[in-house]
Nucleic acid binder design. Structure first.
Lengths: 199, 199
DNA sequence: GCCATATCTTTTACGAGTGAAACACCTGTT
DNA sequence: AACAGGTGTTTCACTCGTAAAAGATATGGC
């Protein structure tokens, strides 16, 4: 609540927060080479020029990208009857190389324990993962990939990645590296700011 | 389907697609200053060094950022009893400045018509939007903000934006601009590649 | 040894989104 | 005028995720 009210609406046009005003303005319409968010920002500037829309240019774009990607990105997975979340569980087990508990899987895949339980049930019924009780602590369940699960991940991973590579291929290689680096910086900050409550 | 299989798994280690292998490798563990995705990439490199994890560094990070943001970003909204999606509808009506149909709202907010119908029902019950039938074409419904709805958006928008600004403040200003620009480039590509089917 | 407390997993109740079907209406053709 | 086909909105059945409660087990103080 502290800094949240820092940018009052009567900040005054021109000195709005720190972001430069959007370039010119095709009357709120959309210019060639612009993405959706640029148009949105211009519309806001037309009706509320006092407000600093800077954050939208990052957060809005991340949300749009994530939405677009999630709608289409999973084509190779869907083909195998999996969704992103299920593949995420399988992939986590594969890349760590050892058994994990449902709690660890939940933390690793950013979802609730309940969601993991559901997914494990389905993946178990399909013979892709196995559960066994921990001998030391019988509250704990240990989950591992079956041979079939491992084979499926290994087959799907390159397909999925090359599909993703195709999706990204419209951006020049050097800029992809820049983008990855900057997203990494942002993610570190977000983890610190928003992820701490879990520690 | 065309270019999607371009990067075959037997691309050969060292020449994997275009991404450099992850730096050294703390045994799959996590180094200081690294984000979660960097650790994930290293784990993959340890068990499947033949695979080009480049796309993960962008898509994985975007997904993580979006997940983290969505969990916490909405603090000021939640305080007003709204969620992101509802605020998105109100904001769209506010920034365009005129009445919109449910279909237009669906396209604008990236969601299904059914979802928009539900939201409009709730927002209508709370007195934030009004529907009226189009006089020309009676299939069409026109939605507009009530005075209360407009006042709520105008009050919430600066709060929400300065909250978002605080979340982003850990990244240096110049880098935020770079990030916004690169995300814009990516978004243009994604819109072209993944958004075309709707046209 | 026993109890209070904490931790891990699963179950339950519910909210939100989606695709497909249903419904209402328009428009051009015959 | 009637009809076929198209478009816009809503309803329906379903999936998926979550928070909170329940169930099972460990652990430390007495």
């Amino acid at each position: 609540m502290t800094a949240a009210n820092a940018a009052d609406p009567d900040d005054g046009p021109g000195g709005a927060g720190g972001g430069a005003p959007p370039p010119a303005a095709p009357a709120g319409g959309r210019a060639a080479g612009d993405d959706i968010v640029a148009g949105v920002v211009r519309q806001w500037y037309a009706v509320r020029p006092d407000v600093d829309t800077g954050p939208m240019e990052i957060i809005g774009r991340i949300n749009r990208c994530a939405a677009l990607l999630q709608q289409a990105e999973d084509a190779p997975l869907r083909h195998a009857g999996l969704n992103r979340a299920e593949f995420d569980v399988l992939g986590t087990l594969r890349r760590t190389g050892h058994e994990l508990t449902p709690g660890e899987l939940a933390r690793e895949t950013f979802s609730s324990g309940a969601a993991v339980t559901k997914r494990l049930k389905q993946l178990g019924e399909r013979g892709l993962v196995e559960r066994r009780a921990d001998t030391r602590d019988r509250r704990v369940v240990l989950v591992r990939l079956t041979d079939a699960g491992r084979a499926l991940v290994d087959a799907l991973l390159p397909e999925q990645l090359s599909y993703e590579a195709a999706v990204l291929s419209g951006v020049e290689a050097g800029r992809r590296d820049d983008l990855a680096r900057l997203l990494g910086e942002l993610l570190v900050q977000l983890e610190g700011r928003l992820g701490l409550p879990r520690g």
